[in-house]
Design a protein around this nucleic acid. Sequence first.
DNA 1: TGATCTCCGACCAAATCAGTCGTACAAAAG
DNA 2: CTTTTGTACGACTGATTTGGTCGGAGATCA
Lengths: 159, 159
Amino acid sequence: MLKLSKKADYGLMALQHIASNQYGDVAHARVVNTKEIAEEYHIPVELLAKVLQTLSKSGIIESHNGPKGGYLLGKNPREITIAHVLESLEGPLGIMDCSHEKDGDACMQREHCNIRTPLLKIQNSIYQLLNNMTLQDMLGGTPLITIQSVATEQQGVER
Amino acid sequence: MLKLSKKADYGLMALQHIASNQYGDVAHARVVNTKEIAEEYHIPVELLAKVLQTLSKSGIIESHNGPKGGYLLGKNPREITIAHVLESLEGPLGIMDCSHEKDGDACMQREHCNIRTPLLKIQNSIYQLLNNMTLQDMLGGTPLITIQSVATEQQGVER
DNA sequence: TGATCTCCGACCAAATCAGTCGTACAAAAG
DNA sequence: CTTTTGTACGACTGATTTGGTCGGAGATCA
Ligand code: FES
Ligand code: FES
């Protein structure tokens, strides 16, 4: 449940890879091409290509054509939020199908719907969660974002 | 993205309905049958039936056969967490397909995978979110659970 | 100019999901 | 004890989404 698509996975991996190549070491501004990433993580090339194209269309990464071409981050890793990445790959966040609906076509009459408000709350919380985490936080060395504020207690998350 | 299935929606609606009939008014322990709920919310009866069966199998509600039969909450609304409901209707929470994997069949070699840890963090946060919200919180009068802790300010925890 | 790379849209196959149907069974009412 | 009302359960179909593929067009550099 609540699984996010392969595209999203691939996209995040690729971003992490690009970011760490660009900021990680000596070589700054090293261009990374699709094939390299695909082979590194065993992702079907064509699919990854499509993912990267989408990301570049959103301004998250920049594409450089021609031989020696490839991809480069479009912004600082601190400014790339997970929410933005995911939303550009899959649709906008919508925990229920009628999350953001134009008043015209409501689902089963909204008056009777008793779960809309609480669910929107949840959805909003998740959004904040994703929006507060940036690519920077996913990079190796950096300590991960602390979202304990919502996590209260670690009561047996089983299995 | 991250949309949850119709079954989940229906399940939550039905639960809310059952709960408010059982605890809301004078009539305590009023049994509610499938057809009633289905008509109220314009849900296909058969599908709702299946959902309710699943829920009753998880002990969230109790079924009562025969004429005048129907469904009843199996626990106190405070003890029915959204997480439990959702997990019993859709699978266990898994933000990526390899969330809970037996060591045997890892996805693309886990060594190279750079996104597993941060994603698990996110997943865990979402779980806590859902696990801290109960059916009680979805009932009309009660003020909703305060998830502001993550939403508004990062109180205490810097980033 | 030609090799190499990204770009882009159309396409197919598999999996999942929503919804349907039919039958069996349980219990209350008469 | 029979009838009526309702749930239990599994198999089935159709629609939608997703994962993955293909082929050509355009850009860039040597
Ligand atoms: S499910 Fe759409 S308004 Fe309630
Ligand atoms: S995606 Fe499975 S371990 Fe990284």
